[in-house]
Design a protein around this nucleic acid. Structure first.
Length: 579
RNA sequence: GGCGGCGUAGCUCAGCUGGUUAGAGCGUGGGCUUCAUAAUCCCGAGGUCGCAGGUUCGAGUCCUGCCGCCGCUACCA
């Protein structure tokens, strides 16, 4: 069987802030689990991420903090890399759309992409009216304008949306607009932009998406929320043309030899997903695979591209980005031929994560209200795996869920430690104390032993199925069920009694427990990589222990264990929250 | 307004294309055990599956209406 190939991306975080638990739960932990799992099955995988540096978001923050946007984005790019590394989220490359090492290659890919679509005639050049700040000498992005909301008379409405009544609008609809740059009243001016003809791609997009409803036909299990939201959008509103350029100098310059393109950049949402491609190209270059190495991943039907994102990115990744790729195709096939950009195999989106502090109401994660738990802070006090565990166990796969600090501690102590950690610990100490640190003989196994051994295979298979379908919560549940079954088996066979009068029976049971622990080590590896490494050390397993296919293979009697250590720390609520 | 989602045991959630007494974990009540970070294991209690209709031999599962919460509506994962 040829080796499966995957190109996995995780949403590019804006490089204008630190990462908090919500970011991690949305796209990054699931993506990392998936990548680790795929690798354990022998697949050839590249895992791509990087910061989204362009666009107004970074510019706005830089302005507020009075620092250069280059410095700001470099700072947060580095900070995010540290956070990811600390959590064991291991990208093959973490680029940045405007970081010094990547900006050239990213601009080239983005501009080529734009030119290709331009060449295909899928842009319309059109004039629109926008607010212009005479003093700052620039057009104003929506978020840089405030004024009175035409719906509810709130005088602090932004150009794109009124936070008071929640309605969205066009910035030209604001009454008494004021520029946040200079405080002056901007004037309405004509400006020219290039609009992507989504309307002409609509029918191909909806056929492509409709094909994703049938998991067997498309080979991937798309989450209903992703499909419903995307298809619902197309059916209800249709796809209008969308401007893919902006009046902005921070970003990728519009690559047209046209006076009207002067001083304009590509829309940040246009260049951001191309970052997935340009970072792949940068990675290929680093690995000596040549400048066109990226095509092996992006333009080959044998490679599956999977995007992990948060719910706010669904429409963009399931509609606009595929539309961009379709717009570069020569043919009108849905998936793309060899040599053309391949539409995503799957788009995996989680909902948002709310947060709940002890004694308070559940609320949205908000930087300004201080309700975020920063990864940087978390890692100062805790190990990464309990967070990975918790965020997977309560992952917002179908609907919003909440990060509840009490629940985090309860699950760490009650599930990770009491079920999983305890099973390892009792098995290990038993082998060390009564069998001289060597795996005892399997002996004459009975039905009960056979059932427990069979459970390991079942757990491996079931967890594998769930992981293939990106059902991470369910997959973790299967793994934890095996740990519980291990504890139940231990109690049922009672080696602590038989050791006094029947060492053969005792050894038989301990052998099965050991084999179970060995399987668990492989099965937890995608979820809890640090813990799995410690388990592998305790069991004295080789590097290949993560291999999924051999996860339930037995180790021979006489196998010598490594030193035992405690796997999971017990968390005391008093210490965690301060007394 | 349009589109989409959610509403199932005290809590957090599973329930695929409708089919035997509605499940798991935690919590709670009771019990066994001592190898283990007083962890484990066994047994039990606890649900009119938001409300009201409808389709069906049969609905948590499909349809309609309603109530409540939430998201998106293109520069906050």
């Amino acid at each position: 069987m040829p080796r499966r190939r995957f190109l996995i991306t995780a949403a590019l975080p804006y490089s204008n802030g630190r990462l908090h638990v919500g970011h991690i739960a949305g796209a990054y932990v699931p993506a990392d689990i998936y990548v680790r799992y795929l690798r354990a099955t022998g697949a050839d995988v590249r895992f791509i991420c990087g910061s989204d540096d362009n666009g107004v978001a970074a510019l706005k923050t830089a302005r507020e903090q009075n620092r250069a946007v280059e410095e700001l984005t470099a700072h947060y790019n580095a900070s995010q890399q540290r956070d990811f590394a600390g959590l064991g989220i291991e990208f093959d490359i973490f680029g940045g759309t405007h970081q010094p090492e990547y900006v050239d290659i990213h601009e080239r890919f983005s501009q080529d992409f734009f030119l290709k679509i331009h060449e295909k005639g899928l842009f319309t050049k059109r004039t629109a009216e926008q607010l212009y700040d005479l003093e700052a000498k620039q057009f104003l992005p929506d978020r840089f304008v405030r004024g009175t909301c035409p719906h509810c008379a709130n005088d602090q409405a932004f150009g794109d949306q009124c936070e008071e009544c929640g309605r969205s609008m066009d910035q030209t609809g604001l009454i008494h607009p004021v520029s946040m740059l200079s405080g002056t009243t901007p004037e309405l001016r004509k400006t020219i932009h290039w609009y992507l003809r989504l309307d002409r791609l609509q029918s191909r997009l909806s056929s492509w998406l409709a094909g994703k409803k049938d998991a067997r036909a498309c080979g991937a299990v798309w989450r209903p929320t992703v499909l419903n939201q995307s298809l619902g959008r197309i059916e209800s509103e249709g796809l209008p043309e969308r401007a893919m350029t902006r009046d902005l100098t921070w970003g990728v310059p519009v690559p047209l030899d046209d006076p009207d393109a002067k001083g304009k950049s590509l829309y940040v949402w246009f260049d951001a997903p191309i970052g997935y491609v340009s970072f792949t190209a940068a990675l290929c270059k680093q690995q000596g695979e040549g400048a066109d190495g990226y095509a092996h991943w992006w333009k080959d039907p044998d490679c599956k591209v999977v995007h992990f994102i948060g719910e706010d990115n669904i429409v963009f990744h399931a509609i606009t980005w595929p539309a961009m790729m379709l717009a570069t195709h020569d043919s009108d096939s849905l998936q793309g031929k060899l040599g053309e950009y391949q539409l995503p195999h799957n788009v995996v989106a989680n909902s948002f994560l709310n947060i709940k502090f002890p004694g308070k109401e559940e609320e949205k994660i908000s930087k300004s209200r201080g309700s975020a738990i920063w990864i940087e802070d978390y890692l100062k006090s805790f190990d990464p795996d309990p967070l990975r565990y918790y965020l997977t166990a309560v992952a917002p796969e179908a609907a919003r869920t909440a990060f509840d600090l009490d629940d985090f501690i309860a699950r760490n102590n009650g599930e990770l430690l009491n079920a999983l950690g305890n099973f390892f610990n009792r098995t290990m100490t038993f082998v060390h104390n009564y069998f001289d640190g060597k795996v005892p003989p399997a002996g004459q196994r009975d039905e009960q032993d056979g059932r427990q051994l069979e459970r390991r295979i079942q757990a491996r298979d079931r967890a594998g199925e769930e992981l293939e379908a990106c059902h991470f919560k369910a997959a973790l549940g299967e793994v934890m069920a095996l740990a519980r079954a291990g504890n139940a088996y231990f109690d049922a066979t009672k080696p602590f009694l038989s050791r006094k009068n029947d060492m053969a029976a005792c050894g038989r049971a301990v052998n099965v427990c050991f084999q179970t622990a060995r399987t668990l080590t492989a099965l937890i590896a995608p979820f809890l990589p640090f813990t799995a490494d410690r388990c592998a050390g305790m069991l004295n397993l080789g590097e290949g222990y993560r291999n999924w296919a051999s996860a339930a293979d037995e180790l021979p009697e006489g196998h010598r264990l490594g030193p035992t250590q405690l796997l999971i720390k017990k968390l005391d609520p008093k210490e965690v929250f301060g007394s």
